[in-house]
Nucleic acid binder design. Structure first.
Lengths: 329, 329
DNA sequence: TTGAAAGCGCTAACAA
DNA sequence: TTGTTAGCGCTTTCAA
């Protein structure tokens, strides 16, 4: 691949002039510009991003940190991030932390090392102190999961309200014993959704039965199966289940089918996220729709603005309850 | 962030010595090394990857091109690529082409611009000529989809044989009218799976009925639903369906459930890939298991070897027929 | 309008 | 063993 010097030589001008042409600088006569463009064409010159980046100390790369690529929830967010990034001349470096501290370190160093210009993190298990440290000097945005009252800008939804809506729906169609399949309450979203769960029960003067609350370590299908299996062993079984992730809800649905329970006649199920699978299950799954694509594109826009030195505000996007067969008794 | 000069100054040595310490060069006395390490610690020095890369003309970044992030099939492959890349000191730049020529161009230019050291492509719709051009000068590996008889090293499975196995299974349990939900046969894997379909039918002296072969434009669930809807309108309906992707098979299953057909009693279904959701459907889906993780890690290893100047050989990995409820009548 | 030259941060060849 | 220095490819300041 030809470099700027060869182009300059071929065109009979200086490298500065070539650079000016490349960057659309106006102070070049059209005659010179033509000569240079000709040389560029002839040599099939493509400027080295490395050289340019070193000089400008920018990489036009955004780091995107996700806990796992396997959950379709993240997939849609990533679509939103990527589209917006590309539109603004950035590319994304997608990295899975697997919630491992070691990986997290590697990736956060990429920010310090200027491999990337900024970072969007969706990992709920990330070390908050380290992240705050980083955010003092570099552009950082949190997406979906965030630190309450923290200093890092975020985009998310109102998890408490969303959970409240899901619960209210179940209560209104007559359920009184509603199980909650939650993830670890060390995560903010888990705590918030739990609060929404509690609020709805209180509002309708229903008791909070700790037996009906199950915590899972992870969000894979299998954990939903296990949770449901546990709940079905209770003496006083629930008549409805609210899972904080569609993947868990799908696992629960599977276990109910296997065990011969009818959904929603015997037990109703509500999920959370509206991943595309939820339309393929039998019955289809009632769920809270998160604006995943928009969340991603908003996060990307915030990060890019932040990189360009603008001040950005945190934002909570709207959710929506999508009622499907798993609660239509 | 401090740079190498500041560290050198603080340690009272030259930048070359700091560089030597950073790169584990042995010809440094332990006294000097100590001084330098001290300075590095004190200034929290992290070498600039940009400077290093420009100098070494390498980025230690691998480009991974996928048609869409939404298909879980790719997710597992990516896991394999990423793990292997990290183990070897590389990171991956994951990019969705959406099978768009424009995006493809942007990304392939990243190789020429040395933003990345090499590329693994899984996009079946990629421009083969352009890719071959690129491969003349830069490390390129094809994963899953490849050019038959081409010059670019690839890792894949024996698609013809896999499809043959799936069909043989259906025939052996008594099916004679077996529909094929295939994707566009402009893709090699679609042609190969079609060949396996044909071979099995011929071997058992069953007729090839073109009415039973349906081609979809994409692999999303919805396309599987549509395909099945079409097949159910035939006068002589199939008794079994083989879909070349689990996502299509899941859509087909959905449509069968909706229309009141029993699977596998009325119609049996076989998918392809073994994505994790195939264990959640009702009934669970018989499918061809592709070694996705291994495919990814193999591709990454091939690319890294290629970057290091080694010659690499194409390889076909083993598949496996996983028999589940959707064919257990 | 154009060119010369400095410099981004690093590594490695060469010299001492 | 250590230091000096050129140079990777580019942009931008300053001068002409």
């Amino acid at each position: 691949m030809a470099n700027i010097q060869e182009v300059a030589k071929k065109a009979g001008v200086s490298v500065a002039t070539v650079s000016r042409v490349m960057n659309g600088n106006t102070s070049v006569t059209s005659a010179t510009r033509l000569k240079v463009e000709h040389a560029i064409e002839e040599l099939k010159y493509e400027p080295s991003v490395l050289g340019r980046n070193l000089r400008n100390s920018e990489s036009r790369l955004l780091l995107v940190l996700i806990p796992t690529i396997s959950n379709p929830f993240y997939t849609e967010i990533i679509n939103g991030i990527e589209e917006t990034a590309i539109q603004n001349g950035y590319n994304i470096l997608l990295c899975e932390t697997d919630s491992s501290v070691q990986r997290e370190n590697i990736y956060l160093n990429m920010v310090k090392n200027k491999v990337v210009d900024g970072v969007i993190t969706m990992d709920p298990a990330i070390n908050v102190n380290k992240l705050n440290d980083l955010a003092r000097q570099y552009p950082v945005i949190q997406c979906s999961e965030y630190e309450e009252g923290g200093v890092i800008p975020y985009v998310s939804i109102n998890n408490e309200l969303a959970a409240y809506h899901a619960m209210k729906h179940l209560i209104k169609i007559g359920h009184e014993r509603i199980a909650l399949i939650n993830s670890d309450e060390k995560f903010l979203y888990a705590r918030q959704r739990r609060q929404g769960y509690n609020r709805a029960l209180k509002e309708y003067q229903l008791p909070i039965d700790e037996d009906l609350i199950y915590h899972t370590d992870q969000l894979d299908f299998d954990y939903g199966i296990q949770a449901m299996r546990h709940l079905l062993q209770l003496e006083k079984k629930p008549t409805a289940v609210f899972a904080v992730s569609d993947t868990l809800a799908i696992g629960a649905l599977k276990e109910l089918n296997e065990s011969g329970f009818q959904v929603p006649e015997d037990i109703a199920v509500v999920g959370f996220d509206k991943i595309s699978f939820t339309n393929m299950t039998n019955p289809t799954l009632t769920t809270i729709s998160q604006p995943m694509y928009k969340m991603g594109s908003t996060a990307a826009m915030m990060l890019i603005n932040n990189i360009m030195g603008k001040k950005v505000e945190s934002i909570l996007l709207d959710h929506e309850l999508v009622i499907r067969d798993s609660t239509l008794g």
